[in-house]
Structures are given as C-alpha cells and as structure tokens.
Simulated scan of single mutants.
Amino acid sequence: MKNKYIIPVSFLCAFLTILSCEPERELVWQDEFDGRELDTTKWTAYVGNGCPELCGFGNHEAQYYTDRPENINLAHGILTITALADSFKTNAYTSAKLVTRNKGDWKYGRVEVKARIPEGRGNWPAIWMLSTENTYGGWPRSGEIDIMEHVGYDQGNMHGTVHTQSFNHRIGTQKGDSVQIEDISQKFHVYAIEWDENKIDFYMDDQLYNTFENTGQGPDDWPFDQPFYLILNLAVGGDWGGKMGIANDVFPNRFEIDYVRVYQ
C-alpha cells in the first residue's frame, strides 16, 4: 500500500534551499570603466614618488606616480595602468596608483576586482586596502588587506595577505597564502575578499585559498572593524618587487582592470 504522506523530493529540495539560503548581497559601489576618462568622483590618482599620507608607507620603489594619460588610460571598458621607463622628473620609471579614500570606504562586505596581471621581472602590481581613518594608529596598527599581490620574478604566484601590529612582514609574522595561476598574465581573473566581523576570506575565481580569523584579542591582532578604502597600483622595483632587479625590456608594462565591485 502506498504511503500518502510521502513528500515529493522536488518539494523537499526547494524547502531545504529556502532554509539554507543567505541574505542576498547588494551591490553598493562599482566601476565598470566604460567611460573614456577616469571617474574622479570615485578615484584619486596619487602624484609623486612617495606616499606617506594618502596611501600608506613606501617600499623603496623606483617609479614616479602620475595622473598622465600615458600612465592611466580607459578604453573598451578596461582601465590600464601602464608603467614606463621614461625617466620622468626624479625617477627612471613612471606608473600610477589609484585610491578610493573618502570616495569609496567600506566596513565589511565582498570586494572583487577582475584584472589581468603584467609579467616581467621588476613589476609589482597590487590590489589592496588600508584604513580610512587609521583609528588605531599608523601602519601596521590600523591594518592592511592585500587582496592580490604579484611580483614579476615569481611569475604566476599570486598572494593574498593581511598585516597588523601583531602580524606583519617586518617581523616575519604576516598572515597570508598564495595560489599558482599559470595564465595570470594571459587571462583576466577575479580577485576578491569576503570580510565580516569574524574573518576575511580570500578568493581567486571563487576558489577560497586563504582565511584570516578574528582572534578576539583586540586591535593589535584584528584592526578590521573600521572602514577601509581600495588601492590599485603598479609599482616598479622596491623591497619585494625589485628583489631580483628590474628587466628594462619589459616596458611598457600594463596592469589591466576590467571592473571593481563592492557588495554588502
């Protein structure tokens, strides 16, 4: 005899899906780079050969950052940051650093950037975040989130890292991991973090490869309870990027960004 109380499998699956679903994220900030010029309501182009206030500390890099079209270009929906060996002003190289400070600042959420990374010894592209107000003091007390870093002498090895007072590279305690991407300079990939009050998850093309958890021990370990802003830059040389020297035959060197999207 048939059991008339059997629940159809399709109904049960739908019911379980409803129970397990998470609140839908809202897109709160984006730049698709569809225009012909940089949107200065969203980005500030840093100009100079140091960056002590607007976007953190320096790493003995070799470039001079400019806002020139030679270094910042938009075309066909792509933002291109170009590093050049053009002996501009006081430096042998030029490039660009773009920041969203006081134009795009977020506490928690998903930050994702679709980009293609340049190759060549001496380049050092990064997608990263710093505290807007430095609530706990200067670097590293107020924290740093490196969504993507790549150095040209270690082709294809992409890093995601955090720095705090307790955990930072100057004392050899930074918390990070890396993933090998063989076509990192041939194809666009999506680099992202998902950040809440308990942890920061790092993703490459939706592949989770690193998690930094809140220890609950205070801001020396976890300063990530305040708004942060986004930075896109292509450095030349520096303490890490220039560790194996700079290959001058790789210029012009291009860091291409398809979009930036922030969800909360």
Rank of each mutant, 00 (worst) to 15 (best):
F167N: 14
I231M: 11
F88Q: 03
T164K: 03
I6P: 01
K243A: 13
G237L: 01
N71I: 08
A83H: 01
E144F: 13
L130E: 01
F167R: 11
Y136C: 04
L84D: 00
A192L: 13
E144G: 14
G48A: 12
P140Q: 10
C21F: 12
C55L: 10
K187M: 09
I184E: 05
F255V: 12
W128Q: 05
G152A: 04
W128G: 01
T164F: 06
D196P: 07
D249G: 00
D154L: 08
S87R: 14
N49W: 13
D258C: 04
L98V: 04
F251S: 00
Y263P: 10
W139Q: 06
T135P: 03
P219E: 03
V28Y: 04
E119I: 03
N253K: 08
H76M: 07
I78M: 10
E197I: 08
A235L: 14
N59P: 10
T135K: 15
M129E: 02
G238S: 11
W139K: 03
E32N: 14
Q165L: 15
T173W: 07
W222K: 05
A83W: 01
A85R: 00
I257Y: 06
D249Q: 00
W195R: 07
T100H: 03
T44H: 09
Y209D: 13
H163C: 08
T132K: 12
E61S: 05
N49C: 13
N168F: 07
I147F: 06
G245K: 00
N59Y: 14
W139L: 04
Y93E: 00
R110N: 08
N168C: 09
D183M: 05
Q30N: 13
V179D: 04
D154N: 14
F224V: 01
E53A: 12
Y93W: 05
P8D: 10
A85G: 00
V99H: 10
W240I: 11
W195L: 11
D183S: 15
W195C: 09
H76G: 08
P252M: 03
Q226F: 04
Y65M: 06
I72K: 00
G216F: 07
D196W: 12
R141W: 12
Q207W: 09
K199T: 12
N214Y: 06
G122M: 03
G138P: 05
L234P: 00
D225Y: 07
H159C: 10
L234W: 00
